[in-house]
Design a protein around this nucleic acid. Structure first.
Lengths: 290, 290
DNA sequence: CATGATGTCTGACTTTAGTCAGGTATCTCC
DNA sequence: GGAGATACCTGACTAAAGTCAGACATCATG
């Protein structure tokens, strides 16, 4: 009852029945699950028929029939794609949007129901984030994104909050050398966000300078995604981007209150060097030649 | 992407596909899922046909046919029950045990696969325990059990470990007034373990004394089960048991390093009283008249 | 513009899951 | 020992999901 595998299997049993309950509530709308799934895929923004078929793992004959049944119900309409008349696009009609909203309400109610039972919802959510990240690990994508976009701003907010918790003296961005967003856009640098199924779970910035090197800044991995070696993936991607931009020398600063970061740098070919800036927060400085 | 409901739904998507993958691997053994589920229920020790049917939510006709198909495969045999020849018992044949072991191996491999990907398996397991407890909350059973049985000993071990972490000076059972197991068995007292689908997640002892009162001891709730108001359920059950045993006065001691416990007692009718023993660990003492 | 590849659709089929109405043997209780 | 309840089984049925082959229009390419 206590070995790791039994604990995972207990977890499996628990979530299987919770997931089954959602399916049952979907059936309550009087439509087979297959059709409901297609409708929801379209509602969530997928419109290319082949893509939906692929996403849901359906045979093309079955897919075609499900689309027809949704069309007969007046919930969707399909059109040939303009650039390739063999392919079809599906979109919701007004009635379809209403029906999709009803499914969304069921999903939201189920999610709410789980949270409402629990007096420590934040702990429950953190556990769910952790598991979702672990299970979709291979589907985490690293994307170059605007350092001032919504995803980047979210990551940076979490990053600063965590520094505030971990530094004895707290952390105030305005006292740190806040890199100009321009320095983290191509061609001077870049900003990479790790996304797991819509949720940003990590980031890193590559900041161009005029001193013959570029700096790695703002490396952050969400607590829920720790243990997945995402930090290393982010660093690898940044180094690749730097090489691509013709950068030959990288530097970074960090703090000994973040031991896991220091360990990562040391184990991936970074060399400790003397202080190279006057930022008040860092006390460790590294360099790596590409 | 960041509101609680979206996070729950991201979690749902992640586990749905993981669960689906396990079903698919089960299908790889060339048997429909319905039959596989019945075989596994029997392998896990369920033998009464009506009980299995109930557990899996199957129609009696369907159940009968699934049993027949497993029998035709030579994996199970069924017999009338000795005390009631209408009812049937199913058990695995030698070939059935082999086949069951193969399914177990698939389940274990899936569980292992999830754990192996993660460099911080203990954090992942804790998150799974938390979620499994939250989802099966209404199925947590409170059972009077032997205070020296495996489940009780597990709970007490976790309890002592936690006190060790939370008391500044640590915790050494031998220095505390360790209640005699006899005092926590009927008719002098009792010991209650909360079980969630095989996993013990909380306990409490009622210890009889010869001083005109009984004591509540060893109230513990697993970290994974906090937020479910299990502490209160355990206390209610203990008070019920005490009343049943004719006990009119309850006392307990606790420590201000466990604020959530003190809060629970205060909010459920306990009154703070002066020290009534010389145990070195507690610094708070309560009493409740039933 | 002919050829082969691609994307979708249709018809014919199978498997799985599930429902429902009896039927039979057995049990409980008067 | 008979009446009614209970547990399981069987036959007949339906719905849903999925498979497969071939048809058809459209596209890319030489």
């Amino acid at each position: 009852m206590l070995d790791p595998v039994s604990r995972v299997r207990r977890f499996n049993r628990a979530v299987t029945s919770a997931v089954g309950a959602l399916d049952t509530s979907f059936l309550g709308r009087g439509r087979p699950l297959g059709a409901a799934r297609v409708l929801n895929a379209i509602g969530h923004g997928r419109s290319d028929v082949a893509e939906i078929r692929d996403y849901l793992g359906l045979d093309s004959g079955l897919m075609s029939r499900l689309l027809r049944s949704l069309e007969d119900e007046g919930l969707i309409e399909t059109n040939a794609r303009e650039d390739d008349a063999r392919r079809r696009m599906a979109k919701l009609t007004r009635a379809g949007r209403r029906e999709f909203a009803a499914y969304e309400a069921l999903s939201n109610a189920q999610a709410d129901g789980i949270l409402a039972q629990h007096s420590q919802a934040e702990a429950l959510l953190a556990a769910m984030d952790l598991i979702a990240s672990a299970l979709t690990r291979e589907r985490v994508t690293l994307n170059e994104m605007d350092p001032q976009g919504a995803e980047a701003r979210y990551c940076l907010g979490e990053y600063y909050a965590e520094l505030g918790r971990r530094f004895k003296q707290g952390f105030d961005v305005s006292r740190s050398r806040d890199p100009d967003a321009k320095d983290m856009r191509r061609p001077r640098g870049t900003f990479i966000v790790a996304i797991s199924d819509t949720l940003p779970i990590g980031c890193v910035g590559l900041k161009g300078t005029d001193h013959g090197y570029a700096e790695i800044k703002r490396l952050w991995v969400a607590p829920a995604a720790r243990g997945l070696r995402l930090g290393r993936r982010l660093m690898d991607a940044t180094e690749d981007a730097a090489r691509e931009l013709g950068i030959r020398l990288l530097r970074l600063d960090t703090n000994s209150a973040l031991p896991e970061a220091g360990q990562l740098y040391r184990s991936t070919g970074w060399r400790e060097i003397p202080r190279f800036n006057d930022d008040p927060y860092p006390d460790l400085f590294f360099e790596k030649r590409l």
